[in-house]
Design a protein around this nucleic acid. Structure first.
Length: 654
RNA sequence: GCGCUGGUAGUGUAGUGGUAUCACGCGACCUUGCCAUGGUCGCAACCCGGGUUCAAAUCCCGGCCGGCGCACCA
């Protein structure tokens, strides 16, 4: 039922969310949450924290939103967000200039070249538009950066960026965070906060923002970790849309339990499987319609640079549904979360760029005895003999010792070094076996050798100080792998409002209401005097409202207009309960009573004033399982004659 | 970013080269009825800048914002 326009109108009129800075013409990609929206969003974040931080025993941190350039150089965002565009003057199609140059010339890496150089290369190579074959020579190459750049400190302060994801704030602090987790895997770190992307063309209100809120969990695990016990979520049914099914015209979403999805191999990571199960339940808890929800696997070509597998949670929004919330029509799918297997990509990158240790020490079950070869060259001999090349000789000896220990059996040992006087290429540190994507860089060794020569040098084996020793290793340093469930909070809020949007009929009058879950609804209860010309009712309503607020409940008061109008106002913003003070409640024998009305059914019960706070608290508690129906068992049901229902003439949306 | 299209009270709208219609809404008072649309009174708008014109909210140009399509969404 949620027509996009109706929803946007409601959100604007009733203060959920709206475009920011209207007074100055507005600014695309930014939305302001009004009072109801901010409350709803905060409740969503609280529910997320409860589930993904507290109940998982994870650790929440809060990192800065501004980070120095080095962080994003390491994470790969500086490169990936700084793209060169050239626009065809004839057909206006924009192209990645660096990709064109890589395709049309023998330059393998054009991404980091200056735009001026790219422009002249395009002209020299006579590159044409792939669309219409018009010449691109002379067209300006513009770089655009999806990260917001800023300067840290005055003057020539260091370059900084507003973070495009919260994750790096966790990754960079890993060496410390692992201490807090007592150096043992697995552990998870969460963060909720804003991220920034200078989108080229933000559109669709909350759907695509330049500043948006993410709730992210980085689950650090041992690379050979068997995964968590799936027992808690084994029976949860997942609507899975695997990559092969998307490519198949007959492919469709499969409803599989977590256990079956793993045993059938649809889900290959049990950590992903576990969190899909947890997420599926959480979404249902906060009010996502499970009939308009699925997990879609990324196609191989769609994966981000850091991910080896990724499943998105997607919600169908803008769809019209029938009275039973079934058979959604039209609408479109939006990504509301991603569950990525990031491997050791991020930690390895930070380890390399920062030269800190991004590892966890893991003890073997049994200490292992291994032979270790070492060379500890006598630099007091090598130094005088080789001068500036002494360091290169030492490095060459170390490399040789690892590759061919037998070479040290003779009295002399021979190695080859490059003698260009320049410091040895720092690539020696690459020998730690990590497999970065630096294959392309490695290819330039031959170019660099122009003014250097390879020289063979001979060293006394004794000077090399070669030893083979048996050492006992009690464990190893491993770079953890990361499983990242990353939630878009704004899109979740949008989905909740969209899925909660209802139209039905009360006493032959149509009404619009939001069937928000009581746990996340902006206002838990509204308190009314039935009529406002009776001071006793007004006074008691005020007292009840104050009492409820002191119990931590979000409460609004309203004595303006007819009781029916006030109920509708609350229905429209999704307030699940209304408390009404009437004369029957204060004039009859015994304790004062009030009526409690439930939003969706408009049914009422009468209960003592003293019970209201406790009952409402139970109703919004996700764990208590208390529902309004339970109250109808325990309290007197008020017969009002009012009935809700869906309009019989359910005309489809135009 | 390109193309098309739009921008009038809080919201949705009508309309015009001479400052504006209606509805809902909101407020006050009357009414006190358990499910919005009883009564009276009131509040509140032509996106911004430039041009044409005696006069521009209206016509023209540019900008900003929205919608749709394309592109983009590591």
């Amino acid at each position: 039922m949620a027509d996009g326009d109706d929803l946007a109108e409601l959100a604007k009129r009733r203060g959920f969310f709206f475009g920011s800075v209207d007074a100055y013409g507005g600014v695309a990609g930014f939305q302001t949450y009004g009072p109801h929206g901010a409350s709803l969003k905060d409740n969503v974040e609280t529910a997320w924290r409860d589930r993904f931080t507290v109940r998982e025993g994870n650790h929440e941190i809060e990192a800065p939103t501004v980070m120095p350039e080095a962080v994003f150089d390491a994470s790969g965002h500086t490169d990936d967000f700084d793209d060169m565009l050239v626009r065809c003057g004839a057909c206006q199609t924009p192209h990645r200039a660096d990709h064109l140059i890589e395709d049309e010339t023998d330059i393998a890496e054009a991404e980091s070249m200056p735009t001026a150089e790219a422009e002249s290369l395009i002209a020299e190579a006579e590159i044409v538009c792939p669309e219409c074959e018009a010449s691109l020579a002379g067209e300006p190459v513009e770089s655009f950066n999806l990260m917001f750049e800023t300067e840290i400190g005055p003057g020539s302060g260091q370059a900084g960026f507003l973070r495009p994801e919260t994750a790096q704030g966790i990754f960079v602090e890993f060496p410390r965070l692992k201490q807090y987790a007592r150096n043992s895997l697995p552990f998870g770190v969460t963060q909720i906060g804003p991220g920034y992307r200078n989108e080229i063309s933000p559109r669709g209100g909350l759907e695509r923002l330049r500043e948006f809120t993410m709730a992210e969990l980085e689950q650090f695990v041992h690379p050979e970790d068997d995964g968590p016990s799936l027992e808690p979520v084994a029976d949860v049914t997942l609507p899975l849309y695997p990559a092969p099914a998307q490519a198949d015209p007959d492919g469709d979403v499969r409803e599989l339990t977590v256990a079956d999805a793993v045993s059938e191999g649809v889900l290959t990571s049990s950590w992903i499987a576990y969190y899909l199960g947890v997420a599926r339940r959480w979404y249902e808890r906060v009010g996502v319609d499970v009939d308009r929800f699925r997990f879609r696997q990324h196609n191989p070509g769609e994966l981000a640079h850091y991910a080896s597998d990724c499943w998105d949670a997607e919600a169908l929004i803008g769809a019209s549904v029938d009275a039973d919330r079934a058979n959604p029509e039209d609408g479109y799918w939006v990504e509301i979360a991603g569950f990525a297997y990031r491997g050791d990509y991020d930690l390895s990158k930070h380890a390399k760029h920062s030269e800190r240790r991004y590892t966890v020490f893991r003890e073997y079950e049994e200490p292992q005895t291994v032979e270790r070869v070492t060379v500890d060259p006598d630099m007091s001999v090598l130094g005088p003999e080789f001068g500036g090349d002494a360091g290169a000789v030492r490095d060459a000896l170390e490399t040789l010792a690892e590759r061919n220990p037998d070479a040290f059996d003779d009295e002399e040992v021979t190695v080859e070094i490059e003698t260009d006087g320049a410091p040895a290429d720092g690539d020696a540190s690459d020998a730690d076996g990590d497999s970065d994507t630096d294959a392309a860089e490695g290819g330039n060794d031959s170019d660099a050798g122009d003014d250097s020569s390879v020289e063979t040098v001979t060293v006394d084996t004794e000077v090399a100080n070669f030893t083979v020793e048996e050492v006992t290793e009690s464990g190893e340093h491993v770079v953890p792998h990361v499983i990242e469930p990353s939630f878009g909070v704004d899109r979740t809020v949008l989905t909740l409002v969209d899925h909660a949007y209802r139209e039905d009929v009360v006493d032959e009058e149509s009404r619009t209401y939001l069937e928000l879950d009581p746990e996340v609804a902006p206002t838990t209860a509204a308190v009314f005097p039935l009529v406002s010309n009776d001071d006793r009712l007004v006074a008691l309503a005020g007292e009840v409202a104050q009492t409820l607020r002191e119990h931590g409940l979000s409460v609004t008061e309203d004595e303006s207009g007819s009781i029916g109008r006030r109920y509708r106002r609350q229905d429209e913003v999704g307030t699940p309960f209304c408390v009404t003070v009437d004369r029957d409640g204060i004039e009859s024998e015994g304790a004062e009573t009030v009526t409690l009305r439930e939003r969706d059914t408009a049914a009422q019960v009468r209960l003592p004033v003293a019970d209201v706070a406790a009952e409402l608290t139970a109703l919004i508690d996700a764990d208590s399982q208390t529902t309004f129906a339970d109250l109808t068992e325990r309290y007197e049901v008020v017969e009002t004659g009012t009935r809700t229902g869906v309009a019989e003439t359910d005309t489809p949306e135009p």
